[in-house]
């Protein structure tokens, strides 16, 4: 279950790739749903899906952070110390950005007291109501989403650089538990 010196364990990899796919899909969905016309059948459905997945991602983020604290860290002694520092910065940046992004998204939907229905399975209550802040929440959500995508590009570029230029096992560690 846990990660080893060689590579990441199954829970870590599932959380990483599951959230990666969901986050990219959420970005696309978020941009697309704002272009829908009022008479589109997706006009209400797309935001409902966006909010539902958002809540699930928030739970996944909490789970992942807890697992990150409990899990063993794969050996990264082969990296330069500057690389380790930058990668720690980017990884913590992801946690912070995602938490803030999701908080802002949650506020857009709930500042006026509305609940978020997660696919009709459960209602997430409005914990903080302050009508009038929704424009700020919206702007912050938008800008953090773009900032997150910038970080994703940086992260993916670094992974590809390690794989194709440095030819080390950095990317492999996140694909199989025991890369050669």
């Amino acid at each position: 279950m846990k990660s080893t010196d060689q590579g990441y364990g199954l829970p870590a990899r599932l959380l990483h790739w599951g959230m990666a796919i969901a986050i990219l899909a959420m970005f696309g969905l978020g941009v697309w749903m704002r272009t829908l016309s009022y008479y589109s059948t997706w006009y209400h459905r797309a935001p409902d899906i966006h909010k539902s997945i958002g809540i699930i991602l928030l739970l996944a983020l909490c789970l992942r952070f807890i697992w990150h604290l409990l899990d063993h860290r794969p050996d990264d002694s082969y990296l330069k110390s500057s690389e380790r520092k930058i990668s720690a910065l980017v990884h913590h940046g992801f946690y912070l950005l995602l938490a803030a992004l999701m908080a802002a998204g949650y506020l857009i939907a709930t500042l006026d007291g509305h609940v978020i229905s997660v696919f009709g399975w459960a209602d997430v209550p409005a914990l903080y109501q302050q009508k009038g802040l929704e424009d700020w929440a919206g702007l912050i959500h938008e800008w953090l989403a773009y900032a997150l995508m910038a970080l994703v590009v940086l992260h993916a570029a670094a992974a590809l650089k390690h794989h194709f230029v440095d030819r080390d096992k950095t990317l492999q560690r996140m694909i199989r538990s025991n890369p050669k």
Binding site: I108, D112, H114, E134, D135
Partner: peptide, 16 residues
């Protein structure tokens, strides 16, 4: 105009 209020924050963002 920014004080438009239709009792739905998401709709009000859209109206603004």
């Amino acid at each position: 105009t920014a004080s438009v209020n239709s009792n739905n924050a998401e709709r009000d963002i859209h109206l603004r």
